[in-house]
Amino acid sequence: MAMSCRRSLRSLIFVKEPIIVLARRTFAAGGGKAKKGSKGGAAGVAPKDSTLAKEVKSTTTIGANTLKDGTDPKILADSEYPDWLWRLLDKHPALSELRRKNMESLPFEQLKRFVKLDNRARIKDNNSVKAKN
């Protein structure tokens, strides 16, 4: 680093009248010549085949371990997981859909969601009114 700074300082020209600085760009060692056919990066590095057995891949979740001394968790049968896990990715109705429905006929979970979304919308409206004043 210091060597390249010294080289670039040699190429500066200082004039006593108006200050004009001319600089020459310097490059890293190696002559700047790339090998024929390479486009940079690590040439000749091919991805290695996985050393894990197929049996281990199908019975464990690779990379899910968060503990320093722990192991990856085993994949269980679907019946051993809780029921709510399978409903996590279900689509939930939007606030506009919930407003169109009859409040007395909504299940508790949807009613709870309606109250949460409605409060959030009212707070957002009140904040925008206060910001305008």
Results as ranks from 00 to 15, higher is better:
92 H>T: 14
27 F>L: 14
23 A>W: 06
97 E>Y: 03
110 Q>T: 00
79 S>V: 09
94 A>F: 00
114 F>C: 08
12 L>A: 06
43 A>P: 01
44 G>I: 02
102 N>M: 12
83 D>H: 10
78 D>W: 05
125 D>A: 15
115 V>R: 09
67 L>F: 11
95 L>P: 00
76 L>N: 13
25 R>I: 08
48 K>H: 11
126 N>I: 14
51 T>G: 15
113 R>P: 02
74 K>N: 03
86 W>C: 10
83 D>W: 07
18 P>E: 05
99 R>E: 03
39 K>H: 11
25 R>V: 06
44 G>F: 00
53 A>N: 02
31 G>D: 01
19 I>M: 04
26 T>C: 04
3 M>F: 13
57 K>A: 03
27 F>P: 03
70 G>L: 06
2 A>V: 11
118 D>H: 09
77 A>I: 07
15 V>C: 11
83 D>K: 13
58 S>A: 09
17 E>F: 08
101 K>L: 13
88 L>P: 00
79 S>T: 07
14 F>R: 03
88 L>E: 14
62 I>K: 12
6 R>W: 03
43 A>N: 09
25 R>L: 04
119 N>W: 08
70 G>H: 09
4 S>A: 09
32 G>H: 04
89 L>F: 09
99 R>H: 10
105 S>C: 05
41 G>D: 02
62 I>S: 12
44 G>P: 05
24 R>H: 09
121 A>W: 09
62 I>E: 15
113 R>W: 01
77 A>H: 02
56 V>P: 05
